[in-house]
Design a binder for these strands. Structure first.
Lengths: 215, 215
DNA sequence: AGGAACCAACCGACTGCTCGGTCGGGCAAT
DNA sequence: ATTGCCCGACCGAGCAGTCGGTTGGTTCCT
């Protein structure tokens, strides 16, 4: 066995002249780090390429433009999050959805760079001309739709009160997530992110829960 | 009348050789608009100067650097907000403080550019090297201190329950403000900003209020 | 088996542009 | 004559993206 370990992997795709897949992934990783540290506008593709050990042209071989690089980063991160939230194929509804928000927050507290990335993009992409604007809009409308279904289910199955102010609760729950992330990124000592989300959800259950949930 | 309209403005203050004070204020106004539209990093002082009707060098006469311009903008906006919140010399405490947050939100919903400005700066200035980083940190710690006093007072005067989770409530209340602003800036149709804040505060009162407040 | 053709994966040099900031003035009111 | 206000010309740095390569594994033809 004189071959390096990765040669032993099953061939899968008859892939790769040199190591296209590998550098592509490294580029995505480094790009995410740079965006989260500097923002998309301030980040330069040259520095990303340098840190990933390729030339700028090498980067542009894999991603046709700076915007394309951003899209790829966002797409990857989102699919990771969706896998975490809905990975088992079963979308959590009712109070389970709000509990899932708490776990999401807990998970995020172990990946500060990811939170940074989102905080930055969320603010930058407010501009309709920003390359991630559409992505962000879809992100929020997707979240809202999910929580809307979750509340409908909760009411239907009798675990949530009908008087629950739906629209306001949905927006506010998302705001709590995002706003706590923002403060946490600025000063992770001063703010207990997950604790805040958990306390908020507990409050929701006390106000609008029915049965054992509302304890 | 062959002169453009702005030449006809009355001299008002006879001060300054030409009109130092006036252009300075125009610059601040235009700068705020540009920052809120593009973010601080992407904004260029040349374009600000142009829109304000002076040369770039003219701008740099009034503000020694781009960062100095930002500081001046933030300082002005914050003093306006403080005037609105605490203008009468009496700092609102107890539930009055949370009601003040609702009014602040209502006021903000009439000044979208101002909200944009804050959303952008709050995300950018996360970076410790950002010129507004210290300002932002002070902004948050000031808010937290105020709300902390407010809750202490509420408990002391018997309008808030002692079990109220203080730290979490403070951070979460601020998060609701900021997070709803973020969503509102992205899509002011889809989100009822002030309504969300009001509903949140109402929930707080139901959970932790004592007496007629908790209806 | 051997070689030609092909193509993904890079690289270095370069272009056109924008940026924040400097410098040496001019002009008008005091 | 000084001082506050403002300008045009300019500079060096950094930017995203283009262009014309080279390299080396893969594939197909003989």
């Amino acid at each position: 066995m004189s071959f390096p370990a990765h040669y032993e992997r099953p061939p899968e795709h008859p892939r790769g002249r040199r190591d296209g897949e590998g550098t592509r992934e490294r580029l995505l990783e480094v790009a995410a780090a740079h965006i989260s540290a500097a923002g998309f506008h301030k980040m330069s593709i040259a520095s990303v390429a340098k840190d990933a050990g390729v030339s700028q042209s090498g980067l542009l071989h894999h991603f046709r433009s700076k915007a394309a690089l951003l899209s790829a980063v966002l797409e990857q991160r989102e699919s990771e999050d969706n896998l975490f939230l809905f990975g088992d194929g079963e979308v959590p509804l009712g109070w389970d959805a709000f509990d899932a928000l708490v776990s999401l927050s807990a998970r995020n507290s172990t990946r500060p760079e990811m939170v940074q990335l989102f905080v930055r993009i969320a603010a930058e992409a407010t501009d309709p001309a920003h390359p991630a604007h559409d992505w962000l809009a879809r992100h929020y409308s997707g979240l809202r739709a999910w929580l809307s279904d979750a509340i409908d289910r909760g009411i239907a199955e009798g675990t949530m009160k009908e008087e629950l102010p739906k629209a306001a609760t949905i927006s506010t729950a998302i705001a709590v997530l995002d706003g706590l992330q923002q403060q946490w990124v600025l000063d992770s000592e001063a703010v207990a992110m997950t604790g805040g989300v958990r306390a908020y959800v507990r409050g929701l259950k006390m106000l609008w829960g029915i049965g054992p949930e509302s304890s």
